[in-house]
Amino acid sequence: MTLAENVSLTDASLHSSHVLNVANARDGAARIVQHFRVRAATSEQKIETLSGGNLQKFIVGREVLPAPPVLVLDQPSWGVDVGSAASIRNELIALRAAGCAIVIVSEELDELYQLADRLMVMAGGRLSSSRAPHELSVGELGRWMAGFWPTEDHPSKTAEHAA
């Protein structure tokens, strides 16, 4: 699959039109490559030939650039170098500022503290209540992750309410 074809995967017009907009897909891929500094020669390059980090940058770019209203991410900076991880985070912050609701699932705590407005822990089948990053120390978060829930908090109840 080429980069342009990969961009087409999430093109919303796929479901409304019968004709593929090849030029648009190529432009879209080129924009992602340029914006996220993906090491790729052309939009027609096979996506399998990208390195892991470049692939990750490209895919995050594919999801971020169309500015969706809601975005769910799992380990967005997984496998990319420090510089690229920072640029991915900056893009996510910009996207949030533009009004996108973002849910990030990650074990990268520094990243979560930098990006999140609210933190929740899911462990042992329970979901904790949400806290702002400045209300929750890394140590406490770590204990939650290990399954030591605070006594004053009733995680299972909270989860029910949330459900």
């Binding site: 699959m1 074809e5 087409s8 995967l9 019968h18 004709v19 593929l20 090849v22």
Partner: peptide, 24 residues
């Protein structure tokens, strides 16, 4: 195969079933 949405879907289903499911 090269220009239609149906053909694109066919190719993706053939090439990458998981990506195809992701794209619906």
């Amino acid at each position: 195969l090269a220009r239609s949405v149906i053909g694109f879907q066919l190719k993706v289903v053939g090439l990458a079933p998981l990506a195809a499911r992701y794209a619906g």
